[in-house]
Design a protein around this nucleic acid. Structure first.
Lengths: 203, 203
DNA sequence: CAACAACATGTACAGATTGACATGTCTAGT
DNA sequence: ACTAGACATGTCAATCTGTACATGTTGTTG
């Protein structure tokens, strides 16, 4: 339930309304943690009930801004330093990649090329943004620095995916060009990936 | 709702029971699409009702294996080629990074170091696995080739994250060492990241 | 043969998330 | 004065997801 902490984190920057937070989530956090307005309004209600935030002001058009409380600020900080990081990833494009062998070679090539373009375009947009930050266009506050770190992750992630798509195009052209039969009953399924939990084993 | 298609994709390799599929999801797809057994059994029921899969055999301890039908195979393929890719990412570690400015420098440094180790450990495990595949230890079927592509994505992704964590440690040491005040009301919140939808704009 | 681990399937419930619907306000342009 | 668009908040139903609970079977080991 990281929406709770995402909202608290944003409110730590200053008071904001549900509407503000919805747009901020869509623009800033949409790539890493999607959230729609019904969920945000509901969570704000719970947060207020728990005393982690409180109503800061009422504006025009029944605008209701919230402000983080001391307890709320303590809670985000507790989350950041004490709560274990959840490394669960949910990424449809990679799920699809496991089933590439079911696709016609031409369809797969087209798919990978579209993916490559999407990822490199996204990476480029983030690089542009990070460049503006580095030139100091958004000031030098701690929040801005922090956002710069997040942007760097996005750049590296999407660049890596773009290069992967490019690599996969070449790999598929070399290794997956044969036409396939109707069902894949020809062999036992191959062994699984290793579980990859480095913290709790060999390290 | 990609669980549906993930199950169909696995069943395209050959018949399997809910138990098999649960373990296969945990081992193979857990990193990119988590799913627990209650969800898998429920979805298998729906899939069978829709005629996309059917009972293949009954084994010992009320084991019930399913087999994909022609309609099911057509449906996975339709998904792979026609359905738009959902690029939504959900990644708690990156959500946290937006709020690094709220952490004490020492805690942040420790956090980033743990993250770096986690990512590089995971990447290393995947690299080992991919190496075994490349030496032909798992055969040369199309499924194996496909899984090799997925593994490559994992390697590149986790390597990129490990390098990011390392970069962030250095960046934070240079730019985020000042101690922060109790609340961050000192400035307006910085502007958001660009939306980064390359397909529908400049591209 | 008792006990345990692994196999195997399922239900029930709580919480997270989304899409559709509903409502009302303020500003700018015509 | 009207109207369109952005502002602003919310409800509701449906679906997805995860945790805990419940049940019974088979093979292995002492």
């Amino acid at each position: 339930m990281s929406l709770r902490h995402g909202l608290l984190g944003l409110l730590a920057e200053g008071p904001a309304s549900g509407y503000d937070l919805t747009r901020r989530f869509a623009e800033l956090l949409g790539q890493v943690w999607p959230a729609r307005h019904p969920q945000i309004y509901a969570e704000l209600g719970r947060l207020a009930e728990a005393g982690l935030i409180e109503v800061d002001s009422h504006g025009p058009r029944q605008r209701k801004a919230y402000r983080i409380t001391g307890a709320g600020l303590a809670e985000v900080r507790r989350w950041l330093t004490d709560d274990e990081v959840d490394h669960t990833l949910r990424m449809e494009p990679l799920l699809r990649s496991v089933f590439f062998w079911l696709m016609e070679p031409a369809d797969l090539a087209a798919h990978l090329e579209r993916e490559r373009q999407y990822y490199s375009g996204t990476a480029a947009a983030m690089r542009t943004y990070a460049g503006a930050k580095d030139r100091g266009e958004f000031g030098t506050s701690e929040q801005t620095r922090s956002l710069r770190i997040a942007a760097e992750a996005g750049i590296r992630l999407f660049e890596a995916l773009a290069e992967w798509a490019s690599w996969a195009e070449r790999y598929a052209a070399e290794h997956l060009t044969e036409h396939h039969s109707e069902t894949g009953h020809h062999s036992e399924h191959p062994p699984a990936l290793p579980e990859g939990r480095p913290g709790s084993g060999s390290a």
